[in-house]
Nucleic acid binder design. Structure first.
Length: 296
DNA sequence: CTCCAGGGATGAT
DNA sequence: ATCATCCATGGA
């Protein structure tokens, strides 16, 4: 009967549901009033009760670290630019924290994220965990850890394809092999500065600027890292550029770095989550294609 | 059915 | 250097 002991800690300025469902981590699942998932190798049940967190499976220290309860959201939000889009997102995302994820599982998950909706990334993550991870139990529920690079490197591409990875299977496998060869030392790279770290990450198969920035933000505590996906690109173009400007990718990157600053990663995640959660429905948006210039 | 998704690698301008 | 195309899969 391991992992049944329940503990409680204070967690002010924290929103567990937004933190777990904002698209930074993909494996936590609702169980009753809380969520079950894994923090590294440990199975965890966690539930928010007002300003307190009730949990089982790991120590309070681990919970505080994983959920970044030491981050000062007051300081972070005070650093945001004062503009309508940012203010709305900040209000909507109150209590959302950028968590500290294990490096390999974060990088591997975002290698799988390319051209995939959040719902499907969750599905791929679950498939990889259930097939190749280790089953553990907490609060009467089975939880699967994310498979190590060693384990995935032993998989065939066909096995990964069965997890629904598509063309991402080859990249994930190749990166896993780079890691077990000792050629890519994810932990040691913590010592590098932002630019050097990004360069190393982008050298891995299936990792470009966007995925590298996600790993940097969600696993390396690089709060300046500003991942630009289709949602954020849309928000930036619609809310920060004049209609006809059509900034290219480089222009967007430069603007984001200059405008959002030290905690740009937090700003980005707030803008991302707010945009996704307030998007009316798919139909309303598609009609926007009507304002395309008319053919002669 | 069609459209698109937390992009990246590759080859053509 | 920038731009276009293809990649595999499934949710909406």
């Amino acid at each position: 009967m391991a992992n049944t002991k329940t503990s409680r800690i204070n967690a002010p300025e924290f929103d567990l549901e937004k933190t777990l469902n904002c698209g930074q981590v993909f494996h936590w699942e609702r169980r009753g009033d809380g969520f079950v998932g894994a923090v590294g190798e440990a199975p965890v049940y966690v539930e928010q009760r007002g300003k307190r967190l009730q949990f089982a499976g790991v120590s309070a220290t681990t919970i505080r670290r994983y959920f970044a309860l030491d981050h000062s959201l007051g300081l972070i939000c005070a650093s945001f630019p004062d503009d309508p889009a940012m203010n709305a997102a900040q209000e909507f995302c109150r209590g959302l924290r950028i968590i500290r994820q294990p490096k390999w599982e974060c990088l591997a998950t975002f290698i799988c994220s390319s051209m995939k909706q959040v719902a499907h990334i969750r599905q791929m993550s679950r498939a990889l965990r259930e097939r190749f991870g280790t089953q553990r139990n907490v609060a009467g529920r089975a939880v699967y850890t994310f498979p190590t690079a060693e384990r995935l490197a032993r998989c065939s591409e066909a096995e990964l394809l069965k997890c629904g990875l598509g063309y991402r299977a080859r990249n994930l496998l190749a990166t896993a092999k780079r890691i077990i060869s000792g050629d890519a030392e994810l932990e040691a790279w913590s010592q590098l500065d932002d630019d050097a770290l990004r360069e190393r990450l982008c050298d891995l198969p299936g990792v470009g600027p966007k995925v590298a920035n996600c790993a940097m933000l969600f696993a390396y505590e690089r709060t300046r890292a500003f991942p630009i996906d289709v949602w954020i690109a849309r928000v930036l173009r619609e809310r920060y550029f004049a209609r006809k400007r059509r900034p290219n990718e480089r222009r967007l990157r430069e603007f984001a770095a200059a405008h959002f600053g030290e905690y740009g990663g937090y700003a980005q995640q707030y803008l991302f989550h707010h945009a996704r959660m307030t998007q009316p429905r798919r139909r309303a948006m598609l009609s926007r294609a009507a304002d395309r210039p008319a053919e002669p």
